[in-house]
């Protein structure tokens, strides 16, 4: 069992579980006042970035793309970059929950 846990895949798995815990905690309504609600924008962007880092780890280590030919690595990374940047861009285009600076 110890031998299994010492494998790189197990180490990244532990990291993925911790990252999920962090996202879970960040996503909870942490009693922010309405003035602080614009901070949600940073938190939400962070949640998206964490999710796509997790996805890259799954692709690289679990799906073993790190052992794959360069073409497959590039296709996967292109998907990651395009989808994550489109999501963050569209999310940030949306109206700010609470008007700031006024």
């Amino acid at each position: 069992m110890i031998r299994l846990l010492a494998k790189p895949v197990s180490a990244v798995w532990l990291l993925l579980m911790l990252a999920t815990g962090l996202s879970w905690w960040l996503g909870l309504d942490q009693g922010m006042s309405s003035d602080q609600q614009s901070d949600y924008r940073y938190i939400s962007s962070g949640l998206i970035i964490i999710a796509f880092i997790k996805v890259r780890i799954v692709i690289r280590y679990f799906m073993e793309v790190r052992e794959a030919p360069l073409a497959l690595k590039l296709i996967c990374d292109a998907w990651l970059v395009l989808v994550s940047s489109a999501i963050i861009y569209l999310y940030c285009l949306g109206p700010v929950p609470v008007a700031t600076g006024g």
Binding site: S23, L26, G27, Q37, Y40, I43, S44, L47, I48, I50, A51, F52, K54, V55, V58, I59, F62, M63, V83, I87, Y91, P97
Partner: peptide, 19 residues
Amino acid sequence: WHMVDLLWIVLFPLLYLLK
């Protein structure tokens, strides 16, 4: 099977957490 996991990793914050 890993792809099924991967898709959920994105669906979770998008549907449940994004504020």
